[in-house]
Design a protein around this nucleic acid. Sequence first.
RNA 1: GGCUCCGUAGUUCAAUGGAUAGAACGAGCGUUUCCUAAACGCUAAAUAUGGGUUCGAUUCCCGUCGGAGCUACCA
Length: 632
Amino acid sequence: MEVALKDILLTKGKEWLGIDIDPSWIQFQPTRKGVRGDVTLMVFPFAKALQLPPAQVAELIGKHVKSEVSFVADFEVIQGFLNFVFSDTLWSDQLVAINQNDSFGLAEPDSKQMVMVEYASPNTNKPLHLGHLRNIFLGYAVAQLKKAHGHQVIKTQVINDRGIHICKSMLAWHRFAPLQANGERETPANSGLKGDKLVGKYYVEFEKHLQLEVKEVLARWNGGDFSNTSASALEKFQELNQALVGKDEKAQAAISDKIKELAKNETEILRAAKDMLVRWEGRDPETYLLWSTMNGWVYEGFDVTYQRMGVDFDKLYYESDTFLLGKDQVMDGLARGVFYQKPDGSVWIDLTPDGLDEKLVLRSDGTAVYMTQDIGTAIERFHDYPALSGIVYTVGNEQDYHFKVLFLILDKLGYSWAKNCFHLSYGMVDLPSGKMKSREGTVVDADDLMEEVVNAATVMTQERGQIAELTEGERHNLFESIGMGGLKYYLLKVDPKKRMLFNPEESIDLTGNTGPFIQYTHARINSLLRKAGSIQIDESALVIDFGEIELIKLLAAFPQTIAEAADNYSPALLANYLYELTKAYNSFYQQSPILNETNEGLRFARILISKNVAKVLKTGLNILGINAPERM
RNA sequence: GGCUCCGUAGUUCAAUGGAUAGAACGAGCGUUUCCUAAACGCUAAAUAUGGGUUCGAUUCCCGUCGGAGCUACCA
């Protein structure tokens, strides 16, 4: 409609107004709620060019458009806004078209470029927590949005299965897991503990011992005992100790942290973990076996968590497979002068000309860092999928700098696709008590949280749900759908870029702006449609009024909403649209009889609207990864 | 210190240069002989602050104040 209006303004504008029309003047927007009209034209740019009052220009354009465009039934001028009122038949035709389109809102599959969406990058030393939930639900929904928008999508995760963190868990397990009677140490099989939880337990164990040793080292240093301390650490310690003098409290705290960091590196246990990493990179068989065994436990644990979350992946990348390629690339880049080497053997890139810092890409002992493996992983992906146009990295915003650097390095290495890599940066999830900190034990575990929301949904549904006709299995699925739907919606309705607060009590709410509220409306419409049975609807006899038009307008905005949400990587836009549609429908439902309406044409229109609201809600919820139960 | 992001009702979120800044929760008052009340209606309540650009600024620019993140041979 807007396109048609734009065309006529461009072709006839000069004749009506006497001046050439610049296309940029033509700005449409949906007419404000509560004001008569369907589409609004801004007349300010025209008024400015014509040197006439906006109202006068609007009147002029409105008159001409009304007489020349068949679907414009009327127009109204309010201040500088020209509101066009479309004919009722246009809206009933829209409704019929929406109704006949089973994949309404969805673009032609695979009609757009192939993109890869990475949305989980767990470390294999700890279980998943609330932050991962936001990450994974967000990435999954973006992947679904891209698909709905016509892209071919590869869902992937990169598993940080190598590195010092996993060596810490390995070392702690090897040292501290008690030997059982049969000679085994604790395993998921013999203890019944979920694999990722077990490995996480030993990571915590490592950190505990590390802290103890750090205290010992510090006590020794402060007592003047520097045996077992490297010369460079001693030098730095003395330097930092000097720096403490005369500083304010804040600066002193920062320096103390640095000293602590220094002491960490001088502990036996951390040295042992580092040795283990070197042995691992040297493929020491015993270390390798321990590593693959413990990672295996973690994967089994993650699988259980992912399954409950309702997410899956098309392709997995393990950093243990890609870090060598990353190292090769670094050596190659070094030869080509992209990187440079320091006397100690470490390799760096100087990004100061680009306004960034110098960045390490390979340690002096030759082992890979995060950046090294990310370079390798990216290249591997484009190698695996030649048709791939770009990668979306769903990673928290504390890594904004890392990705800026990564994309710049890839560009400097000569990969043209580097500019199509996008860091989907999301904000941290805070708790009412503040930031989640593993050290303070305020981390919200993903499995525990999911269990909790499903339990809450179970209680509420048993209390108010219409579930008498459901079997035991169906009930179980329903509770799961409602609990998980609430949790997903809660995390997805907020703009991804923004830091958000997670309130445990609100997350299990079923009323207000929540997932179950939308699910409920969908279920209620389904109940209505079941009662409607096989009423034959005569699509040529629809009667519509103001309330119906409002809803048809909202329905018609669905494809546009998907496009915008996909282009902006923002499931929140879709979530907010679904909420708005739900609100509008509930209000309509409350004041308008549907099956009981006596005017047949009106009844037909209302049933059709109900049916298509349900259709859009279901499609939309599914894109967000949320189930839409038929009854609840 | 440098760089980046963020300040909207009591609280959590909307509004991507447009009209009277929307919701939800919480508070108060209402709505079930009728299609699922997990619903609906009504009331009170907000753009941190000072400038600038614009016909028009929550939105863009600059300053101030407040908050967060990054600035690791951790990942």
